[in-house]
């Protein structure tokens, strides 16, 4: 087992542990701060899975901004909130069924890190081996994001824009 595998496995285990603690915690402030740690752990995992751009975004957005926004929301509603639960049995049955169906599904998937998996067969080689000539910038993620899939990114920016409009409509005051 290489060092990369060990890092990968231990980060995944830590993620699962922090999620289990998150599930059991009742104090809202602690839940929010732990969810920031959870995001930072997943950013670390993304680095070990070669997704540096994603890790960068997750660290800035998940660990930074989301935590700040959640803290802002807690400042509005006050942290002395009762945390009650619905029944435990029905949700447990539902997730047990869903989980077993999903685990059955993973057995059909290509094993982790397999270079012959179908996902690597079609557009990925073109992006990796021709973007250097076609676009001329080293970061393939940026070429795909901004050029090959520019239309897609335009849509994503429009979604972010729409979310801002929604928040302003819900919370904003009329312009002075």
């Amino acid at each position: 087992m290489g060092i990369e595998t060990i890092i990968n496995l231990s980060l995944l285990t830590l993620l699962a542990l922090s999620a289990i603690v998150l599930m059991r915690l009742q104090n809202l402030l602690a839940v929010v701060l732990l969810s920031g740690i959870y995001s930072l752990l997943s950013a670390g995992l993304f680095v070990s899975l070669d997704a540096v751009d994603v890790a960068f975004t997750e660290a800035a957005v998940g660990a930074g901004l989301t935590t700040i926004l959640l803290l802002g929301a807690i400042a509005i509603i006050g942290k002395e909130q009762t945390v009650s639960r619905h029944g435990k049995l029905l949700p447990l049955v539902v997730i047990a069924i869903t989980a077993s169906a999903l685990i059955y599904g993973t057995l059909d998937m290509p094993i982790f890190g397999d270079p012959t998996a179908p996902i690597h067969a079609y557009v990925a080689p073109r992006y990796l081996f021709q973007s250097g000539e076609e676009i001329g910038i080293p970061n393939v993620v940026t070429s795909v994001l901004a050029s090959y899939r520019g239309y897609d990114t335009l849509g994503e920016v429009a979604v972010v824009f729409t979310a801002a409009i929604g928040v302003l409509l819900l919370l904003g005051k009329p312009n002075k």
Binding site: L65, I68, L69, G72, A73, A75, I76, E134, I135, G136, I137, T142, S143, A146, S147, G150, T153, L154, V157, V160, F161, A163, A164, V167, L168, L171, G172
Partner: peptide, 27 residues
């Protein structure tokens, strides 16, 4: 391609920064 990517990344950056700031102000 360089020019196009430069300009649209600028557009993305401006919108994302402004959206995050405005959401925080609103909260």
């Amino acid at each position: 391609q360089h020019l196009g990517i430069f300009v649209i990344e600028l557009g993305v950056g401006v919108t994302v920064a402004a959206v995050m700031i405005i959401i925080f102000y609103a909260l």
